[in-house]
Design a protein around this nucleic acid. Structure first.
Lengths: 230, 230
DNA sequence: CGCCGAGTTGATCAGGCTCAACAAATGTGG
DNA sequence: CCACATTTGTTGAGCCTGATCAACTCGGCG
C-alpha cells in the first residue's frame, strides 16, 4: 500500500500552501455505495477523492443509466461548484472511500487568487473532454465487442495494477456497470464476457474484473468489421 | 445583421483591458473549408471565432469521421494551447470566417495574470463537457431517428435564428456532416431525412437545413421505443 | 459533355435488442 | 445455519433497426 495519491488540484503548488488548503478541507468517510451528491442539486463544494473509488452517473428520463466517469484517488469531481452551477451527475462511492470537500465560496476564492490552481482545473477538464470525445468516437464506430474490450482495458491500465494473473481493476465493476459504460444491453454484455471467461482471457475476483490475457483482449480491438478499412 | 458576437473568453472583463487584448490578437480571414489547424500538431495558439462557422473534426484510424463540435462566433477553440498540449482535432472553417489567435505563451501569461479569464475558460470547458456527456447518453440510448432529430433541433436553437419558414441552421450541414455527428451511415440518414422532407417537416436552403415544422420534429423525441419506459 | 462528388433508393443481411426463463450469488430473518 | 427473498447474471429464440452491397440520379465544373 502506497500513501495517498497526489492531488491533481494541488499539483505544482508550494507544499506549505497545499498543506494549508488540505487543512481547510472537510474530510468525509464513505462506505461503499453512499451517495455523495445528486444530479441537479446546486453544487456546494469541489470534491477530491483521497482513497477508494467513486462513479459519476446520469440517469435518463426513461430509466437508463450512463456512467460518465470513474473517479480514483487524487481526482477532482464536482467542479461546477466553481461556477455556482448544479451537479450534472450523481456521485456515488463504489467502495469504502475518503473524500475532501472545499465549499464553493472558499474554493472560488482560492482559484481566483491562485492561477496555478485554475490551470490544474483546466488540465483536468481537458483530459475529461478528451475522454468523452473518445467515447463518442467509439460509440459511433465500434461494435459492442470492441467497446467492451476497450473499456475494460482502459480501466485496467488507468486504474489497475499488474497483478500476478494479469491486470485487475481495483474496484468492483458489475455487468450492469459495463453496460452503463458502453451502451448496450445486459444480455449482450453478459454473453460476450462469458465467452471471454470461457477462453480464460478474463476472470473475476471478488467482483473485480481481471484481464488474464491482456494481449488476447487487445487483439479484439484490431479486428474491425472488415469493410471500414476505407 | 448584428455586430460581432460577444467573446466568451473575455466576458466580464474591464472593457479597456479586453480591448487591448483584442489588439494583441492576430486576425485571420478564412474562406470556406480552410484548415485552421490539424489534429496532433502542437497547439500554438488559443483561437476565437469572430464570424462565420467552423467544425472540429476527428478522423479515426479506419477513416470514419466524427464532428466533435461546431464553433460559432464568440466561441473559443484550441484551448490545449494553454497547457502546451497538441490539438486533439482538425479545425476547418465551414463558411467564410474570421478568427482571432493568441499565441500560447501570450495567452498563458494573460490567463495566469487574470483569473476571470481562467474562469471563462473553465466555464467553456464545463459547457463542452456537458455537451459531450449528452452525446454519449444519446448514442447509448437513442435510435438513429431520434439522434437525428435531436442534433438538428439542437443546432437550430443553439446556432439558428427563427426565419419565416421555421428555424434555419446558419451554415451548411451536409448529409455526411449529420452522419459524422450522430454516428450512422449516410444511407440511413438520407432515408430518414428524405422522409421528413416529403412530409414538409424539414427543407433545405442553399445547403442549410431548415426545420419547417419544429413541433413535428420535436415530437419524434417523445416517441421512444415503447419498452424502455422502465 | 463527360466526370466526379454528393445524395437517393432498393434489396439483403446481421448485430444486437426484445422477450422469456432460468440459475447463481448475495442478503435477511428466524 | 438454513430457508427464503432479492438482486445479479446467464442462456435461448426470434425479430428489427440499421449496416452492407449495389445501382442509379443529380448538380456542378473543367
Amino acid at each position: 500500500m502506497s500513501g495517498d495519491a497526489a492531488i491533481g488540484l494541488l499539483a505544482g503548488l508550494d507544499p506549505e500552501f497545499a498543506g494549508s488548503l488540505l487543512e481547510q478541507a472537510e474530510r468525509r468517510i464513505l462506505q461503499a455505495d453512499e451517495v455523495i451528491f445528486t444530479e441537479g442539486s446546486p453544487a456546494q463544494a469541489v470534491h477530491v477523492l483521497v482513497s477508494g473509488a467513486a462513479r459519476l452517473v446520469q440517469t435518463t428520463p426513461d430509466g437508463a443509466r450512463v456512467i460518465i466517469k470513474h473517479v480514483i484517488p487524487g481526482e477532482i469531481f464536482g467542479s461546477p461548484a466553481l461556477l455556482n452551477g448544479s451537479y450534472p451527475v450523481d456521485a456515488v462511492s463504489v467502495t469504502d472511500s475518503v473524500e475532501l470537500q472545499w465549499p464553493s465560496q472558499l474554493i472560488q476564492d482560492v482559484v481566483t487568487g491562485h492561477p496555478p490552481i485554475a490551470l490544474n482545473v483546466i488540465r483536468d477538464l481537458e483530459v475529461r473532454l478528451r475522454e468523452m470525445e473518445s467515447r463518442v468516437r467509439d460509440l459511433s464506430n465500434e461494435p459492442v465487442e470492441q467497446r467492451l474490450a476497450r473499456t475494460t482495458l482502459r480501466r485496467v491500465d488507468k486504474f489497475g495494477g499488474q497483478g500476478p494473473g494479469g491486470g485487475e481493476i481495483p474496484f468492483p465493476v458489475s455487468r450492469q456497470d459495463l453496460v452503463d459504460l458502453i451502451g448496450c444491453t445486459l444480455h449482450t454484455a453478459s454473453r460476450t464476457l462469458q465467452a471471454w471467461e470461457a477462453q480464460r482471457q478474463i476472470r473475476r475476483r471478488r467482483r473485480r474484473p481481471v484481464v488474464a490475457d491482456v494481449d488476447a483482449v487487445a487483439k479484439i480491438l484490431e479486428a474491425p468489421s472488415p469493410s471500414k478499412q476505407k
